[in-house]
Design a protein around this nucleic acid. Structure first.
Lengths: 346, 346
DNA sequence: CTGTTAGCGCGTTCAG
DNA sequence: CTGAACGCGCTAACAG
């Protein structure tokens, strides 16, 4: 690793001149031909600044801390890290990811990241919920991922859960379904209530009745299958909106046992576009995609803009299936999730 | 963030004395009572060394670089990162994870990690395969994850694929199955050949015939389902060893359509213990767990031992379902994966 | 327009 | 037994 000093020696100028040139702060301060020579030598030596030394001096490291409660391990949410990483990379930043296994270790993890001099933090949760950000983070730029700040003060990005329920149900209505079931989630989650609300909104708008018999909440386990089978036999829904792709499987299995064909006899919409499940199921599952990658990407751009206190227009957002909200937004930002049309809706 | 200087001022000693004491190098060099005072002040001020400054001085940062080709995004392999992270944390290290989207960006990513002064690298692949490690890494300690070095020189950890096939098939044989099918993978993978080999080995040992009609390789898509249905109707296997949990789903679906009950009429064993799939399926899928967390944990301990050139006995390996190999091993290390007994084998 | 000087926070000689 | 002095690689004052 070449150093500034080596370059200065070889180019016959002082270290500070080299620093000036290589940081492009030589406009009208260093003669053009000498600046050129410096650049040449740097190029030849394959110079890259030592980021630790620079960080020590400038007090910013271009390291972002990614705090999560085992989010890295969930099959769903690795995409958030990937998206954040990608956006970070494009802007010359890097991620240190840390998982906290509980509230108690959290403080220690933050302390470690502080010692490395991170410039800001992501604070990610496993699924959309209200959260209070640790007070230790209050001096840093922070963006919440898949969680909403209880005090409604720190910027966050989450899926628009209501629209998920609305779009999915609308899809089934437009396909001609009139008796649409909702296979919900027994665990208390923000997403559960909102998606149900969207489901009801779509039905109401279409002047379809809300039949409480068609609404069930299940855990992700054996009894869930029986509950779905029973619902199918008893009330014969022609459409199913499922809280997630895993719950959609119960519909597939029940249909197979009942001799019903998905995409013809009944229609199904899930949520997640879970890589393994949604791709494996046959016919492929029409599902609303949770845009983890996109949320991560957005959060990183947002965080960097906060760190650099700069105009958000410098960030090029990728064009993705779920269009990203403007970076100018603050507070509780939501993202309209794309419905991925596959084969399970007639 | 308190500094050495602040402590030295408050304690009325010099900076170097503080450094000595706080690094526990004060044996017979600093008077006990003064050392005690220094420690007290440091405690009060909540002192933690600035890791960048230390790294600049010592040329090691306690940062580990985790290179992977989108491994972070696969639903399978996030566990590797988690395991590596956990082991790193326990030993005072931290991870910078970087995904390369192709061979070309790889070199640039490595360069970035070098500039941050990482002490060593993980080089992870998406699934067990032969790999040549980028020459740029040759000056660093490196551990390969879920991949084997083509030149057989850098240390790697991978699942013992042969035993996966053997154990899974043996499980079915012990349950009384005599016509055991193998639902394999059409993509060329190291794992495919080895698992098939283990399957055949178990059959041969049990003096069961190897019937090529019972062996099919499929992609993960619609036609796979038809292939499995056809196999089921035509040859009536009583046991199924599936390359992975996703392929096991085809057996579940086919069985449901044929009116067969899994765990009674036929038995199924998968591979992955994929969080969503294996837990959602009903009856729950008996499957061989790919110990991603464990591999990551092992790799981190190994890498740190290489960096510190220290005895491997200082590392406490967690007791996990798949017992970890000794850290004394070098070269191509494999891990015996645990079979998770659930409900799909009679 | 350029080079000298200083110091970020730390660890390590080397005198005293 | 302790503290002064130096340097890691870099940037930012300020002087020339």
């Amino acid at each position: 690793m070449a150093t500034l000093k080596e370059i200065s020696l070889k180019a016959g100028v002082s270290v500070s001149t080299v620093s000036l040139v290589l940081n492009n702060r030589d406009a009208g301060r260093v003669k053009a031909h000498i600046a050129e020579r410096v650049r040449k030598v740097a190029q030849d030596l394959g110079y890259h600044p030592n980021l630790m030394a620079r960080g020590l001096r400038t007090n910013h490291t271009r390291i972002l801390g990614f705090l999560s409660e085992e989010v890295a391990t969930t099959p769903y949410a690795g995409g958030m890290i990937l998206g954040a990483q990608e956006a970070a990379r494009k802007n010359g930043y890097v991620l240190i990811t840390v998982s906290t296994d509980g509230e108690n270790s959290e403080d220690a993890e933050i302390a470690v990241l502080e010692r490395y001099g991170v410039d800001g933090f992501f604070y990610a949760k496993m699924s959309n919920r209200f959260t209070t950000v640790p007070s230790r983070l209050s001096n840093y730029p922070v963006v919440l991922l898949d969680a909403v700040d209880s005090h409604n003060t720190v910027t966050s990005i989450t899926p628009n859960e209501l629209l998920i329920g609305y779009d999915a149900t609308k899809k089934l209505i437009d396909a001609g379904c009139t008796r649409i079931a909702y296979i919900g989630c027994s665990e208390p989650m923000l997403a559960q209530g909102k998606r149900l609300e969207g489901y009801k909104k779509a039905l109401t708008e279409a002047k379809l009745p809300i039949d409480e018999n068609l609404i069930i909440n299940v855990f992700n386990n054996g009894p869930a299958l029986h509950a779905v089978e029973k619902l199918m036999c008893t009330y014969n829904p022609d459409g199913y909106f499922c809280f997630n792709d895993a719950r959609a499987w119960y519909v597939y299995e029940s249909a197979a046992r009942s001799g019903l064909t998905i995409g013809r006899d009944i229609s199904v919409v899930g949520v997640d576009n879970h890589r393994v499940l949604a791709e494996t199921l046959s016919p492929q599952l029409t599902t609303v995609e949770l845009p983890h990658y996109e949320m991560g990407y957005w959060a990183a751009c947002k965080l960097i803009s906060m760190i650099e206190d700069c105009d958000t227009s410098k960030f090029a957002l990728p064009s993705t299936r779920s269009p990203l909200p403007s970076l100018a937004n603050n507070g509780t930002v939501t993202i309209h999730c794309a419905l991925i049309d596959k084969e399970s809706v007639q």
